[in-house]
Design a protein around this nucleic acid. Structure first.
Lengths: 240, 240
DNA sequence: CCAGCACTGTGGTCCAACCACACTGTAGGG
DNA sequence: CCCTACAGTGTGGTTGGACCACAGTGCTGG
């Protein structure tokens, strides 16, 4: 056991020490969202490691959406604790898609799963639905595919938020983000963008109506058809 | 637009250059899982950045489960491309749980959602189910809570794998990993571990039987009850 | 024949210095 | 008296160089 104990420390790369310290500060509540980490140089001295190692740890936390580093002085400066799981999960998924080890079809399928659930569980009086309705109006006058898709993303995220499960919302957002480029390229496959956009708008209204009408089952079905229909039309078809 | 163009490059921290280069190599297929990155010093020279920046990028990719760095020589040395999304998502979720921005109740609820779906969709002739059955046998003779829980994790992961959606499997695993410590602490709340373990074993057998008996709906229901029942008994109760 | 050792190339760590940035306080002119 | 301009200070960002531990490779001497 002694050797294990030693090995435990020996095997731990230096930046892990920093990560562990910060995670413990977070768990114990000494460090909260909005709080600031000690300055890199200070932290390095406190933990008895080099600034390089501190920076590597901070880079990791930044990639995981846990902190944000800002130069200069003032309120936006320094390394401050944030909480943006979506960005972290999104870039991780995107990279793994790039390695061809996460099929796009599986991502779409998972998205259907999460969104159907969210639609079925959405609270009809959630403020997120008001935002969704507002986004629908903006989409009415949007002819540019890029702008339309951006609004579409926010609409679907609003629906997910209406279910009140932040984990589902975060995963939904990250799935969407990871295939955003992919979805954008798909618009080129569409024979008639204006017609497709019109159909999507109509389906959006139907989904929202089902939710506000307390018909969760119908909302879930409509969402699933909505997503699968789009990808089928745009060319992912066979692999669904 | 000129200023935007400039700003684009100016605002990009150096390690981002490296990340972008590597991601492009992955997307274009020049770098595949199992392949090796150029040595840090070489890459630094190629991209015209310092080795420090290269290392920061590699640290991020390591945290995201995209690469693994090994010292020394030989096949296990160097920085090699892997694909372990589960580890990445798991640590990200764990950290965000630590910041109290991801409620454990939401994680459990999401886990129920994903596992129910997987149980309903599991292919009865999947090899993963054979492993699940083998794990069940090992759990029969396991009296130690820690060992039991470790096998339990693998059992549930095997069930998820049987559905054939790697994204769902990865998310399942990461959810489980993010609350592993939490679940371990919960065993202390149980009045009678032996009785609980016996019940869990029985429920596991029921779930597996439902899947192999082509009754996906029943399997999904049993899984949901299984998970929710455990957390309810162990003390998360009210928040579910 | 092979045991042992020097060599080589890998990541791991640290240090010292410099830069860009953004706010703060002060000194100077109006 | 105000307010402009500037030096000061503390933050992260980046670099080059140095040294270490590690694990194969290949030579060298017994």
């Amino acid at each position: 056991m002694w050797s294990n104990h030693i090995k435990y420390y020996v095997a731990m790369r230096t930046h892990r020490v920093v990560l562990q310290w910060i995670e413990e500060q977070l768990s114990s509540g000494q460090l909260r969202v909005g709080g600031r980490l000690p300055a890199e140089r200070t932290l390095a001295e406190q933990l008895g490691v080099s600034r390089t190692s501190v920076r590597e740890a901070i880079r990791i936390l930044e990639a995981l959406g846990v902190v944000r580093a800002g130069v200069g002085s003032g309120p936006d400066a320094g390394t401050v604790v944030i909480s943006e799981p979506t960005a972290a999960l999104g870039s991780a998924l995107r990279l793994h898609v790039a390695t061809s080890h996460l099929p796009v079809a599986d991502i779409v399928q998972t998205r259907v799963l999460l969104e159907s659930w969210a639609a079925a569980r959405a609270l009809p009086d959630s403020p997120a639905l008001a935002e969704a309705a507002s986004l629908l109006e903006q989409m009415e006058g949007s002819g540019d595919p890029e702008e339309f898709l951006a609004l579409d993303v926010r609409f679907h995220l609003a629906l997910a938020d209406a279910a009140g499960n932040v984990v589902v919302s975060a995963m939904m957002g990250s799935l969407r983000e990871s295939i955003q480029d992919y979805a954008g390229r798909l618009t080129g496959n569409l024979p008639d963008w204006a017609a497709t956009a019109a159909r999507l708008r109509q389906e959006h209204r139907g989904i929202l109506a089902a939710i506000t009408g307390h018909d969760g089952a119908a909302a879930a079905r409509l969402v699933a058809e909505h997503i699968e229909g789009y990808y089928a039309e745009a060319g992912l078809g066979g692999s669904l």
